[in-house]
Design a binder for these strands. Structure first.
Lengths: 131, 131
DNA sequence: ATCGCACACGTTATAGCATAACGCAATTGA
DNA sequence: TCAATTGCGTTATGCTATAACGTGTGCGAT
């Protein structure tokens, strides 16, 4: 149950994200891939769905945008909670993971008898350079 | 610098959210307020902007929707990070706060020399009843 | 008092994000 | 071979959010 071979469209979308400085919206990706034959949003969204499923890409909910995962070796194991800092100045996104937060959240949620499926942690602000 | 008197539109939107079981999208709010004279999305969005600013309402990024704040006394003090569990089954949203998470996130972010402006924590899953 | 400013409001139009529904082609495995 | 699955392409549509314009009202400063 690793990552299967990517299809052509999936590879193109993955490539666009991987070579991008920061997050991209689906429509921005679409525009970047027009030369490769992309014509409709669904081509992007369908590829993104798979890439998200494989853990190769993250969705930034507060931005309606997508980034390539920067923890290349985590796709195999069951990965935990992913958190992001998002700079409002330069758009830079930094992905990080922390076991303490994970455990604390897990405990709080368990106290509610809530069953977690997906956790979103996004911190908007300004990075060192843009402060 | 407490919460100023709400305008008519702000009160109507606040009321709609307060009496709702769960989160509502801006357009759902609009529909609920047609009878009160609302005609355009901007009437809702402008009211929501203010209510968010006053801390009376939260935006759920992963849902593109809004909920009334359930911690009625926190609007005065400087409130910290707000987290939510969101049940995919019944739509129930529970707001909670935790100093430990707040401190841990603060430390991690400080290590990046990142300056936080707004933190989003949303946990999607299933509540006790919907498990 | 009236001018200027800030702010809320109303309206139309448009931009930006996401999915429904259809049909076709290729692959695979019973 | 047939059926099921998966990816793909296309058109159309729906949902979310904001731009840009103008109006009215309250209020403090001159």
């Amino acid at each position: 149950m690793g990552t299967p071979q990517l299809t052509k469209n999936q590879s193109l979308v993955m490539g666009a994200l991987a070579h991008s400085e920061g997050p991209m919206s689906a429509y921005t990706i679409l525009d970047k891939l027009r030369d490769e034959g992309f014509r409709a949003p669904l081509q992007v969204y369908r590829a993104l769905d798979k890439l998200l499923e494989y853990g190769l890409v993250h969705r930034l909910e507060s931005l309606n945008a997508f980034v390539a995962c920067t923890c290349p070796h985590e796709h195999e194991h069951d990965r935990g909670v992913t958190a992001f800092t998002i700079c409002e100045g330069c758009g830079q996104v930094t992905e990080f993971h922390d076991a303490a937060i994970e455990e604390r959240l897990s405990a709080l949620v368990r106290a509610q008898s809530f069953k977690t499926e997906k956790t979103t942690i996004e911190i908007r602000g300004h990075c060192k350079s843009c402060a």
